[in-house]
Simulated scan of single mutants.
Amino acid sequence: MTLVTAGVVVLDCAEPEMLAAFYKGLLDAEETDATANRVEIRGAEGIRMAFRRDVNITPPSWPRPENSFQAHLDFRVTDLDAAEREVVALGGRPLETNDAGAPHEERGYADPAGHSFTLRLTPPTAPKQH
C-alpha cells in the first residue's frame, strides 16, 4: 500500500498569490487549490508547486558567498534566450553565476520573492541530419 500519493514543492514567501502568478506564467500552470495562506498550482507537464504565506520570511540571498545553496529549482528549456525573456517579463531577475564548467548550458535566476532557480538547456534529441 502506497502511503504518499503525490509530492509538492512548497516555497515560503510573503505574498503567495504574487509568487503563484509568476510560476503559473513560467510553467503554463493552473491554480488547483487556494486558501488565505497557501496557493497550489500544477504545470502543463505535471509539475506541482505550492506557495505558503510566511509574514516573517527573510528572502534568500544567494549567490552571496557567506550563504549556501539551501535549495533551488531546475527547469529544462529548449531556448534559453526566449525563456530568459519570459522570466524577466514575469518579474524574475537574472543572477550572476560563475559555473562555466557545467556540462550543459544553464543560467541562474531569482523569482520575485528571491528564490533561486536554474534554466537548463535541453539538448535536441532528434538524430543528426547528414
Rank of each mutant, 00 (worst) to 15 (best):
V4H: 02
T5S: 15
A6T: 14
G7K: 10
G7W: 05
V8Q: 08
V8M: 08
V9G: 03
V9E: 05
L11Q: 11
L11I: 06
D12E: 14
C13I: 14
C13W: 02
A14T: 09
A14W: 04
P16Y: 07
P16R: 06
P16Q: 07
E17R: 14
E17V: 15
E17M: 13
E17Y: 10
M18S: 14
Y23D: 00
Y23R: 05
K24V: 00
K24T: 00
K24A: 06
K24D: 00
G25R: 06
L26C: 07
L26I: 13
L27D: 07
L27F: 11
D28R: 12
D28T: 10
A29L: 13
A29T: 03
E30K: 15
E30C: 10
E31Q: 14
E31P: 09
D33N: 13
D33E: 12
D33C: 08
N37K: 13
R38C: 13
I41F: 13
I41A: 07
R42G: 03
A44Q: 15
I47W: 02
R48V: 04
A50Y: 03
A50P: 04
F51S: 01
R52P: 02
R53G: 01
N56W: 03
N56D: 12
N56P: 01
I57H: 10
T58C: 07
P60I: 05
P60K: 11
P60Y: 01
S61F: 01
W62G: 11
R64W: 00
P65F: 00
P65I: 11
P65C: 07
E66P: 03
S68Q: 09
F69Y: 12
F69L: 08
F69N: 07
F69C: 06
Q70G: 10
A71C: 11
L73I: 11
T78A: 07
T78F: 05
T78G: 09
D79E: 06
L80Y: 05
D81R: 11
A83V: 06
A83Y: 08
A83L: 04
E84M: 06
R85V: 03
R85F: 02
R85N: 05
E86D: 09
V87S: 01
V87C: 11
V87A: 02
V87G: 01
G92T: 04
R93P: 02
P94K: 10
P94F: 01
P94Q: 07
T97L: 04
T97Y: 00
T97S: 15
T97N: 14
N98Q: 15
N98I: 03
N98W: 05
D99P: 04
D99K: 05
G101A: 05
G101I: 02
P103G: 02
P103I: 03
P103H: 02
P103D: 03
E105R: 12
E106Q: 13
R107D: 00
G108Q: 06
Y109I: 02
A110Q: 14
D111R: 03
D111L: 06
P112R: 01
A113H: 11
A113Y: 02
G114V: 06
G114S: 08
G114T: 08
F117C: 05
F117S: 05
T118W: 12
T118M: 10
L119I: 10
L119P: 10
R120D: 00
L121H: 06
L121Y: 02
P124G: 12
P127G: 04
P127R: 08
P127W: 01
K128G: 08
K128M: 14
H130A: 07
